[in-house]
Write a protein that binds this DNA or RNA. Sequence first.
DNA 1: CCCGTTTTTTAGGTATGCCTAAACATCGGA
DNA 2: TCCGATGTTTAGGCATACCTAAAAAACGGG
Lengths: 159, 159
Amino acid sequence: MKRKTIEDYVELVYDLQKRGKRVHTNDIASALNIKPASVTEIFQKLDSEGYINYEKYSGVTLTSRGRNLAIRTKKKHQALKEFLILLGVDKQVAEKDACEMEHILDPTTMDIIIKFVEMINRCEITPFWLERFKRFVESGRLEECPPELVMLCQKVQKN
Amino acid sequence: MKRKTIEDYVELVYDLQKRGKRVHTNDIASALNIKPASVTEIFQKLDSEGYINYEKYSGVTLTSRGRNLAIRTKKKHQALKEFLILLGVDKQVAEKDACEMEHILDPTTMDIIIKFVEMINRCEITPFWLERFKRFVESGRLEECPPELVMLCQKVQKN
DNA sequence: CCCGTTTTTTAGGTATGCCTAAACATCGGA
DNA sequence: TCCGATGTTTAGGCATACCTAAAAAACGGG
């Protein structure tokens, strides 16, 4: 990950806060591979913007504003990761890309992706087209769609 | 768009170069809503990194290295935009999001997305599941999958 | 071909997000 | 309780990507 955003920090504070109490500069610094001194500055900024309660030398807790942002961000992250994995992206890569995408996508795009994941998850079986797609990604060769399936789809489409 | 990357500039030079000859600071500046003075700096940097040939006061042309990067970037951009539009994202939004995504996605993810677009484009008809998905996005209600379709898919899957 | 207009460059400035080194607080064992 | 180890903050620095104002070059009509 390159440039970190407010959302990244808030999300991380949220995660670290769960298993324990207040979150300290060192916790963030070691998780993100930056220096504690930088985290202090970040804490000051996040505090001034109302996302955390910062007390010198004793770590931070999230405000409700911060918690909301963290939860929203985590949901986006989760949906994006699931989405990519569904398409056949490697889990590690999906994690990384989701982390970047969560900051840049338009809310309407995000919404569509969330719905996509939901649709797939609600299927009883992994859809045929998705299996076929993954085989395509694997092999580079796109197999023909079974003609009876094409015909049935056309028929269903008409109604 | 916020921070612009090398790829953005190279891509833009490529586009502007096509209809005309050398590209000037003002062309870029007005296209990206930044000041000509900033473009001069960017030209100097791109020149030092071998993407463009920069001649003071007379604009730039792309090197082959620059042209390659531009073309690669444009392909990514195009595939991403198509991908989003396929899923039902508004064209304007798709344009914007594609522009951000093209810089951050892992090559393997990009490859999968390109294949996805290819798969859909090779279908004789818009796939049933995709139509169904778009109706879901529109209405918020996910209609049941026709049972005969589910059954056929299961059957096909077995072979 | 000269001079005013337009375009481009230079020089210097701002904000941001990170850094290091050093000062400072806190914590826990002797 | 004192002190050294550990953790945190401050101060100052660097790089980046933009900016403005002013100098310099190029352009083009009279």
